[in-house]
Amino acid sequence: MIEIRGVSKVYDGSRPALDGLTLDVRAGEALAVLGPSGSGKSTLLNLVAGLDKPSAGSVTVDGVRVDELAEAALARYRRARIGMVFQFFNLLDDLTVLDNVLLPAQLARTARGEARSRAAELLERLGIAGHARAFPGRLSGGERQRVAVARALMNRPPLLLADEPTGALDTASAADVQELLTGLNADGQTMLLVTHDTALATACATRTIELVDGRIAGSTTPRGLDPGGGGAPAGTGLQAPEGSRPELGGVPSRDGHPGSQGFRHGSGTGGRAGR
């Protein structure tokens, strides 16, 4: 799914944020990138998301050379192939929850009925349908991040990118989001997580790497999976075949269908982690 070859990134002639990085992420895999501040985690995420260009090397996602795309093509790439979840949610405060979730489909000019049906389904499955007409400012941090996840999955992206998805949440909300992401991956959603949170990495990721000074300093498979195989262990029913598009972006429902795990509603217990 992701092929990174000899990627370096230098800002203004200073020390490289990434230094000759080579990395592969297979479909269905959940890769967590750990590392201290300034290690190059966010730079890596930005390069994969097409938000930034490498100084050297290549970035290929789902067969697309991201580093060679022009702005308009990058926009199309971001609409179709990736979904992004941010530490501070990055919801548009002026739009309702429903409108926020609909936004990627509207930008992609998806048919109105189809988009609304997809949004309703996502909101229902993520347990925030009751807040569809609310504005993000009225939700708890966990609920906001659920909205952000719903928005990220709206266009059924093959790759979900998450930048410190629990970084702005209290413990309960963080656990809620962690459970959500784990379920998504279990249903076959390929993910790239950037986090400081080792607990999140351990729970969600099929593989973790640690970046130090822009290089991979180490790699583990916290859930005991084959780092090259991707997906959940055989027999769990969660593994998606390589290249497949998980149904509903792999969102597990409250009743465990099609995933096996139920999810706690973001009921506000997580408090309000405002920006």
Partner: peptide, 16 residues
Amino acid sequence: VHDLGVLKALGMSPRQ
């Protein structure tokens, strides 16, 4: 500008 960044991250093209 921050909202613009979000919209662009969601796939808003330069023309849009």
